[in-house]
């Protein structure tokens, strides 16, 4: 009776998109080289009035409506982001207020580069598993920035995913968790800095690959499973290339990872990326399907989950499937993008 699962989930992605080719045109790069090198062709851009908090609210409202519960029953709210609107003042209270979960709940913000979202989900899981609360929400939300002209500018997207966990009427059970972390200086942003700095190729093998492999192997060892035991695998997706490479290294096939690979269409949504991938997989999963999830956050660490879809998943499909959300898009040029991201200051 202590099994914790996903009672509902919700995803929000801004409707604006910029093509990699449009960014490449401005910086004199070859579009083909960028698209092939990063494995993505466009990214999402937040509207002028969207930030991590507004995207989180949209995702959270969808998760509550998917779960069909009274939002007042949500007793914890964790939001992971590296673009919290305030340096000091929680995003979690804004979201809790906007979904009607205040005042009797535990609310806190997280920061751990791209894995702050799964960090929130793990803590929600822990609170429910301990018997302290019945429902809690973990959200990953970001509107991250890349330095103009930097490789990150092609991939830094915007989006949010909210996971409402509970024990009753879940669409999928979280059968196990495993985390892996070391002090690795692959990517960072100092206080007051607008853009992050990174170690270029150093972000690969000692950063992303070491930790995602550490997380994924750790959860499989803990559960006594092999890659072939999973219907789907979702890895953090900073671009379209890394998750495909790590899947191959771990022994997962394209069929297992492609359904959860969303970054090629919306860019890297940072704290939301792994969770949006998981949402896309849950949109398609059948009862009994096992799903391996391994996030990654620079600095560095990975949170891994072994999830199994329950018998309820077929009758409780999400009204806002990820693949449909990403189809709602309007393209903007680099000038409009620069205005949206406040790279142009009035």
């Amino acid at each position: 009776m202590s099994c914790v699962g996903i009672a509902g989930y919700g995803v929000s992605i801004p409707s604006y998109r910029i093509k990699a080719g449009e960014i490449a045109r401005v910086w004199g790069e070859e579009e083909g080289r960028i698209v092939k090198g990063l494995g993505l062709s466009e990214k999402s851009v937040p509207g002028l009035d969207e930030d991590a908090a507004t995207l989180a609210v949209d995702a959270a409202r969808r998760a509550v409506s998917h779960a069909g519960i009274d939002p007042y029953d949500i007793k914890s709210m964790f939001i992971g982001s590296e673009s919290h609107p305030y340096a000091v003042k929680p995003t979690a209270t804004i979201v809790a207020e906007a979904i009607g979960a205040t005042p009797n709940l535990f609310a806190a913000d997280y920061e751990f580069a791209c894995k702050a979202g799964t960090a929130g989900v793990i803590n929600t899981y822990a609170l429910i598993k301990s018997g302290e609360i019945d429902y809690g929400m973990g959200i990953g939300a970001d509107t991250s920035q890349g330095r103009p002209g930097d490789a990150l500018e092609y991939s830094a997207g915007a989006g949010a995913a909210a996971f409402l966990l509970g024990r009753k009427d879940v669409i999928a059970n979280i059968e196990g968790i495993y985390s892996y972390a070391t002090d690795t200086p692959d990517f960072w942003r100092r206080e007051h800095a607008i853009y992050p700095s990174h170690g270029g190729r150093f972000t690969g093998p000692p950063g992303y690959f070491k930790h995602v492999i550490g997380g994924a192997k750790g959860i499989m060892e803990k559960m006594g499973t092999k890659p072939r035991d999973y219907a789907y695998a979702v890895f953090h997706q900073p671009n379209g290339k890394f998750p495909r490479t790590v899947a191959k290294k771990l022994g997962f096939t394209a069929e297992q990872i492609e359904p959860g690979l969303i970054t090629p269409y919306i860019g890297n949504t940072y704290s939301a990326a792994t969770l949006i991938g998981l949402a896309a997989v849950l949109d398609a999963a059948k009862p009994g399907d096992a799903i391996l999830v391994a996030s990654f956050g620079s600095g560095a660490g990975s949170d891994a989950f072994h999830i199994e879809a329950s018998d309820l998943i077929d009758e409780r499909r999400n009204a806002y499937p990820v693949r449909r959300i990403i189809e709602n898009k309007r393209y903007i040029d680099y000038g409009t993008y620069a205005k949206h991201r406040r790279k142009l200051v009035l």
């Binding site: 009035d49 969207e50 908090a53 507004t54 609210v57 949209d58 709602n328």
Partner: peptide, 25 residues
């Protein structure tokens, strides 16, 4: 109804959030 930023005082000021609307699907 959608939830959006309504106003920002200045880079150091308060951010006001609230309702706006979008065309329904």
């Amino acid at each position: 109804m959608v939830f959006r930023k309504i106003h920002e005082d200045n880079p150091e000021g308060l951010i006001t959030y609230g309702f706006k609307f979008k065309l329904a699907d």
